[in-house]
Simulated assay, not measured.
Amino acid sequence: MSDKVMNATKQLPLDLTFRAALGREDFLVAPCNEEAVALLDMWPAWPTVSTVLYGPAGSGKTHLINVWCETSKARVIRGEDLQNENVPTLVEGATAVAVDDADLCPDWEALLHLYNLAKEQGISLLLTAKQPPSRWNIDLRDLDSRLRTAQVGALRAPEEDFMAALLLKQFSDRHLSITPDVLAYLLPRLERSFTAVRDFVTAVDAESLAARRKITVPLAGQVLEMLQSQTKED
């Protein structure tokens, strides 16, 4: 474990920036997400209609959409729910619209319709996906050409230092303490994602309360095994 991570047990936030999300959570800005955050910070002075954030599951895309929607008062819809018939209602009276997992849109015509209406009405459009638009296998030339003009920001899996900060922040939010040996045990074993950190801290908190046990390496290992078993069953 690096010296920087060890210092994280004594002082937050590892030279990272805390940012409010939805008025009750904190979002950490770090090298793995600063490109995407910088694009959102440019709003409402975006030079293009659409902005696309992409990254692997658990990299924070949905969290960033929530942060941006709180700021922009945007309406949000899941890509799998986007249909041609609901586009007019989605943009009516809106100043901004977000589509989470836009690459899962079942009808590219619907996304093209949304893009065109957003451009006509001066509406900002934020899209998220696991891959950049160039890899969405879009078979609609008009949509493909429009999305090539979008601002694109990448999110990567959290680095070790960032994972340490996430764990410390999640434990702190629950008024729990984590010792250096538990942190050192978790970092090489926990999946590097926001989701994995949240699920682990939630589960270990519940198990600690139920068993009236301190959070130790054995308890952490037990909870990790339980979560891994649940994932296999799913």
Rank of each mutant, 00 (worst) to 15 (best):
A118V: 12
V201C: 03
F162V: 10
D142Q: 11
G221M: 11
T231A: 15
Q228A: 14
D103Q: 13
S145G: 06
A94L: 05
S229V: 12
L143T: 02
E160L: 14
L224H: 11
T195K: 13
D142T: 09
D205R: 09
Q230A: 13
L219I: 10
A220S: 02
P132Y: 06
V152F: 08
L186W: 00
R156T: 09
S172N: 13
M163W: 02
Q170K: 12
R135I: 04
R212E: 13
Y115H: 15
L143G: 02
K214G: 15
S193G: 15
T202Q: 14
S229D: 11
L219F: 11
L140S: 01
K130M: 12
A98M: 10
G122I: 07
L227I: 10
A96D: 09
Q131E: 14
Q228D: 14
S193T: 12
Y185V: 06
M163Y: 03
R148I: 01
A206C: 04
K169C: 07
A102P: 12
A154Y: 08
E191P: 01
R212Q: 14
A96L: 11
L190N: 02
D139M: 12
G153V: 00
L176A: 09
C105P: 02
G153H: 06
L219C: 12
G153M: 04
A154I: 00
V217E: 01
I138W: 04
T216W: 05
A164V: 01
L125K: 08
F200N: 03
I138V: 15
T179C: 11
A196K: 06
L183Q: 10
V217P: 04
K169M: 08
M163S: 08
W136E: 01
R146H: 07
D173Y: 07
L117H: 13
